[in-house]
Design a protein around this nucleic acid. Sequence first.
DNA 1: TCAAAAGTGTTAGCGTTACACCCATGG
DNA 2: CCATGGGTGTAACGCTAACACTTTTGA
Lengths: 224, 224
Amino acid sequence: MSNIIKKYEYAVMATDTVLFALDDGKLKILLIKMNKKPFVDMWAVPGGLVRGDESVEVSAKRTLKEKTGVANVFMEQLYTFGNVNRDPFGRVVSIAYMALTPNIDMEIKTTKDHKEIGWFDVKDLPVLAYDHEKIVKTAVSRLSAKLEYTNIVFQLLSKEFTMNELQTAYEIIRGEKLDKRNFQKKILALDLVKKLDKKTTGQAHRPANVCTAKHEGVVNVEIL
Amino acid sequence: MSNIIKKYEYAVMATDTVLFALDDGKLKILLIKMNKKPFVDMWAVPGGLVRGDESVEVSAKRTLKEKTGVANVFMEQLYTFGNVNRDPFGRVVSIAYMALTPNIDMEIKTTKDHKEIGWFDVKDLPVLAYDHEKIVKTAVSRLSAKLEYTNIVFQLLSKEFTMNELQTAYEIIRGEKLDKRNFQKKILALDLVKKLDKKTTGQAHRPANVCTAKHEGVVNVEIL
DNA sequence: TCAAAAGTGTTAGCGTTACACCCATGG
DNA sequence: CCATGGGTGTAACGCTAACACTTTTGA
């Protein structure tokens, strides 16, 4: 691969995807372990080169699936990283995506080139290959920002959730506790969720109302 | 160029820059006229291929300068457009930038390949080549959005300006009139401008106070 | 019966908006 | 002196933030 890239007169492109999930009160991302020098045993965000016959977005989905087994998750373009020396194998520009899943227990797989894969707390990351630390930081800060003016948070929750799960998602990402009553008032005022005729069961406390998002996709929604 | 691109197994990259300025109560962008089929006589945003030895941002600055003569303007990455068929000459992905200048009277030049160049009201654009209409729309909506949570507006004003010029910039881009007293209160509360010991002269009405931005660059600033 | 989380309203303070008159200058 | 835009304050309203007790369940 490196020979192919080096001989190009112009830059070629890759995609890298930061996949987020909530777990255990933490915001986590999915990383794979590198084998290749000079990054042996360093972790990286899954990615790969964009082929001549696929769109950038398709490429991001394909490489995420090939490297991790993950498919059918929400994805959104993040930023394009284009420094000259970001990749020691050649002149590669990376179009970074962020992806969100409600399901940290989804099946993930390793590959021949990446024998380990795992979820890492964004507040406690290992050393990352390439400029992936910068990519991850950009993704985390974009995600926080989008919490405030979109309904993107629902991409991190199951179809059905409780007000408390929703509130906890905000608390984890914003890093601060919120008031239960005020939180519920705002969410209801924004008209983003429906309360279902359904309660949680099996917990040693009062059952909670089950809710669902009113809209399928991600939309802008001043203001939380 | 098309032959070079076609033989690549992977996608190559270009940058395109939407340069904004305010003029005559309108938000305008700088366009150049194409000669090449199938875009003969269509207008386009200035851009060009990213070389193997330059960063993406440097490439955007270089191509803007080469195609229009414009240099030393504020630039910021916008979005990356990666559909397969966006360029009939080959598999080219475009990293779009937006640029802002306070000075619509700056010198601009044509080139061998682009014999015409000019400023166009974003509300009255000609037919654009490639997917440049999409790029321009993305740029306009990003600019509007950033007005609300950054001090980016100062990149469209001279170093020294009056409160009225500042307010007019907001009014043009937001497309609505604002209240003079409330506007001034907000701006002062945000502590974004200094009033200078200086007045405008030569106008057939009371002189206005001259102001300047407190910060050099673009920063986030909840909320206008 | 105990522990744990769910559900639920009111009040005070702050920020936002609406609004009108006099002033300084050039022509 | 006239036309033009510049400069300035207050009051009502709405939104936000602070705050605590009762309910329901499983163990």
